[in-house]
């Protein structure tokens, strides 16, 4: 008789039937472990949430009063003989991978992850496992990230140049994660940092556990003149709206992994594209898969078919894809919401 796999993919989400626990379920369930605060991973309506302690204020901010238990990194908790623990995923602040162990077999689900240390999110921790369930948002060899120090030099130079032309710099990044990563590395000797309300609110929630530069919320009273030469961090959804129009003269930039594509850089009327992602690039994905020592790999979202084919044919792994409701091929659709990961 075939044994039920430790984790299965059903209509509600990723499910551990032995423990009767879901991970990042997309439909309301009884008990759900949450990897991180992005909307496609932490949904509304579960009866009980389990997540990292530092993610508690984040999902409370997003979902209101919920029943949630916080766990520390590496802290094990056992449900019906299944042992769970959370490990840093490096994707955004307080983002976890979930390690699941039962009768000596280990599975890991990455949620979203990146391998580069971005200076705010707790750095990615490699967790050995038998089966590795991974995202592959940027699972194509065309995606290779530049070290962020170089990207931020570019961003700060761009800001400084705009300032000499007496223009306002507006940079887009989703309000949980990318916005704070940008904020963390801006050079405040150039000027003041202003924020869109959605970003200011989220940043204030995070200030409880993390340090950021001082920011000023843009309100109705903010004048065009005081913004000149300074920088504004805004969610992508603000682009093209009336909110931004009153900041003329301004220059816009997008910071995203999708800016790798020349077509995406040229899209719409965004002046500048910086390649900066909170997901692993091609080399990061491959290196991680290799180092986990997993024999089985399941790709959940991104270029899943291509990525798993590569793992099968070039690396000889038992790799397949599973359909989930995490942002698939999300280059465009995610942009409309600012809140969702890239």
């Amino acid at each position: 008789m075939q044994e039920t796999p430790l984790l299965i993919f059903n209509d509600n989400g990723i499910y551990c039937s032995q423990a009767e626990v879901y991970i990042d379920a997309w439909k309301p369930v009884d008990k759900c472990i949450i990897t991180h605060g992005h909307a496609d991973h932490s949904r509304w309506g579960h009866k009980n949430y389990i997540t990292h302690t530092k993610n508690v204020p984040i999902i409370k901010h997003r979902l209101g009063e919920i029943n949630v238990t916080g766990k520390d990194w590496g802290e094990t908790f056992t449900i019906n003989s299944v042992t769970f623990s959370l490990h840093p995923a490096g994707h955004i602040v307080a983002s976890s991978q979930v390690r699941v162990e039962y009768k000596g077999e280990v599975w890991v689900f990455t949620g979203d992850f990146k391998t580069e240390n971005d200076g705010i999110a707790e750095p990615f921790e490699l967790v050995k496992c038998n089966t590795f369930i991974t995202e592959c948002t940027f699972g194509l060899p065309a995606f290779k990230w530049t070290p962020q120090a170089e990207v931020f030099t570019d961003i700060n130079n761009w800001w400084a140049t705009n300032k000499t032309e007496n223009k306002t710099s507006i940079i887009f990044g989703y309000s949980l994660g990318k916005a704070q990563r940008i904020l963390k590395h801006l050079d405040t000797s150039i000027g003041k940092i202003y924020t869109h309300g959605a970003i200011e609110n989220m940043t204030n929630v995070l200030r409880e556990n993390y340090n950021f530069h001082e920011t000023t919320r843009i309100t109705r009273d903010t004048t065009k003149k005081e913004l000149l030469g300074n920088i504004v961090i805004a969610p992508p959804s603000a682009h093209g709206g009336t909110w931004i129009r009153k900041m003329v003269p301004y220059v816009t930039a997008n910071a995203s992994g999708w800016m790798t594509f020349r077509g995406a850089r040229r899209r719409r009327a965004i002046d500048k594209g910086f390649v900066l992602s909170d997901h692993a690039d091609w080399d990061g994905l491959l290196k991680t898969v290799k180092e986990t020592g997993a024999e089985k790999v399941i790709a959940t979202h991104g270029y899943t078919e291509i990525f798993s084919k590569y793992l099968r044919e070039e690396m000889g792994l038992d790799a397949r894809t599973e359909k989930t409701q995490y942002e698939e091929e999300s280059g465009e659709s995610a942009k409309k919401e600012g809140e969702v990961a890239e």
Binding site: P141, A142, F143, K144, T146, E150, T153, D154, N157, T260
Partner: peptide
């Protein structure tokens, strides 16, 4: 241009 191994990154400073 994208898939070739790169010692020179996408960045402008390098």
């Amino acid at each position: 241009a994208l898939i070739l191994p790169t010692k020179n990154s996408l960045s402008e400073t390098s």
